[in-house]
Amino acid sequence: MNNIQLDQQGRLKHFLGIEGLERTLLIDILNTAASFLSIDAKAVKKAPILRGKTIVNLFFEPSTRTRTTFELAAKRLSADVLNFNVDTSSASKGETIIDMLHNLEAMHCDMFVVRHNACGAAHFMAQHVSPHIHIINAGDGEHEHPTQAMLDMYTIRQYKGECAPLRVAIVGDILHSRVARSDIHALRTLGASEVRVVGPKTLIPKGVEALGVKVFNNLKSGLHEVDVIIMLRLQRERMQGALLPSAHEYFQYYGLTEEVLKVAHPDAIVMHPGPINRGVEIDSTVADGERSVILPQVSNGIAVRMAVMAMILGVVIPEQKEVH
């Protein structure tokens, strides 16, 4: 489906979405990320792998966290980084996405890391850039956020081991979540034994079962004996769209507390793409508790983004060192 992402040799050309990518490729990304984690741990956090390459962070939506980790990833690989935050109001003044792309292309950049509020924006750009330009999707509307999914998979593998038959629950606003969609595709491709989505009917998209998940509207039954819990951020504006009555009620029925966590597997880990809303989707005691792997997710995010950038720009990846 997403074969526009691959070149003729089947290597990664763009990274637009998890859907349609082979299991072996996803595992390649994870293995490559593992080799980069050692760079992160060094005193001098730099490898000359992308020296002379220029990477543009092209963000049409405000983001600090994701943009920063992409920037760090690129810099640790010695690439030159340009941050381009497109004020949506100036975009609406008339310059089209195509014009903007071609302008940036004219500055001889090699890769665009794109975040846009329109679904399919990264696909659209990949279809229209010159052949030597690469696109990484850093989130397109409610569609996909593939590097987030890969860092989630990396974190799961780190704590649960390779190829473990896992039961995973994704909890919260599935309807608006690009992270949920990418995670679902990644978990299904990598062979999780069961993927569940948990949330109120107003936040579960129609026909989501077709993606290969089980739907639960009750938190406790959804978390029963799961090995991994991925909590999603609840945007405040959901209360305005009449999707939920209040943050207070949401927390009461869908907030992750120590009490609720007891129904999960005793070794279950708790994940969250951040930034977290304490007391809305997750209780502080859980977010800061020993089952939480939210901060390791952030560290892994840099290594995963380094891996994707290095693989796409076609450089030779250093020999596998031992994993952690």
Binding site: C119, G120, G141, R178, A210
Partner: peptide, 15 residues
């Protein structure tokens, strides 16, 4: 159209 395709693509559906 609201359904499996809108969900897969993340696009807002019309039921």
């Amino acid at each position: 159209h609201e359904g499996a395709v809108s969900t897969r693509l993340g696009l807002l559906g019309v039921p």
